[in-house]
Write a protein that binds this DNA or RNA. Structure first.
Lengths: 137, 137
DNA sequence: TTTCGTGCAAATGGTTTGCAGTGGC
DNA sequence: GCCACTGCAAACCATTTGCACGAAA
């Protein structure tokens, strides 16, 4: 279904190591954003010798190289596979994270620019609110 | 110019204590958002015996009671006086924080709702980008 | 064989908590 | 005088770093 995600590593001058491949696999399987700590728990369940600091170093390096992207939320950083440009909607009640295609905020960006001269990032914004389910509870 | 900010405290069942009044004064003077730690530094310069934990407890309680509001940014929490509903624009380059009147994102909220069923909070969003000055550097 | 990555342990930075004492109302 | 609030010290949690060993290329 997907080409092997690990293939991107050598192209970026990164070695294909067990921790990195596991991190990529898990993020692909979960298809969502995870904190480094949560990622470490999941990685550990597959290979228990892998250290937290290794997970931190790797999500950091893979984010810098564009394989992953990160968002700050509630005092921690969440990581996910870098796919099409998108924003994030996080439910303040249940924590659910929804992705929103980047172009849905382009008029908002124009409005912001007009009002404040501020150039909003075209992707990676994190918006909070309530998901459909929690709105009815 | 302003009515004494401290007056809101008794109305909320909070005592008017030195740490609280200093925090409110500083936030009014600076007219921006500050981290608890930065706030503590400024508070200390006026009353050096006040402890960090007191600052943390107070910004927390005043936020819960609606006197302040807080935003998460880069691994720390920033606090400001709760005034008219607004969003925040943070410059990723210089850290400058700009306030954006809440209604400027109302069409964006409608677009988000239509696309994802997600009810964006009507204020308190934090958007990242580049401020006018940094766009030219 | 030469870097790059890793595990480990210790340090860091922001924030929270338990407790005994104190000052606001 | 009662209880909310405080200072202090220690704990906590996410994250980072120094170092010597081990493994990808």
């Amino acid at each position: 279904m997907y080409a092997d995600l690990g293939e991107v590593l050598p192209r970026l001058g990164l070695r294909r190591t067990v921790p990195r491949l596991l991190i990529l696999d898990i993020l692909r399987e979960q298809a969502t954003h995870l904190s480094a700590l949560r990622l470490h728990t999941l990685v550990s369940s597959l290979c228990e010798t892998i250290n937290v600091s290794t997970v931190y170093r790797n999500v950091s390096v893979m984010t810098r190289r564009g394989v992953l992207h990160s968002i700050d939320h509630a005092g921690e950083t969440l990581f996910g596979l870098a796919v099409a440009p998108h924003h994030h909607l996080i439910c303040r009640r249940c924590g659910t994270l929804v992705e929103l295609p980047a172009d849905h905020l382009s008029e908002a960006a124009a409005a912001v620019m007009a009002c404040s001269g501020f150039a909003m990032d075209a992707d990676g914004q994190v918006l909070s609110g309530h998901c459909r389910r929690c709105r009815h509870a």
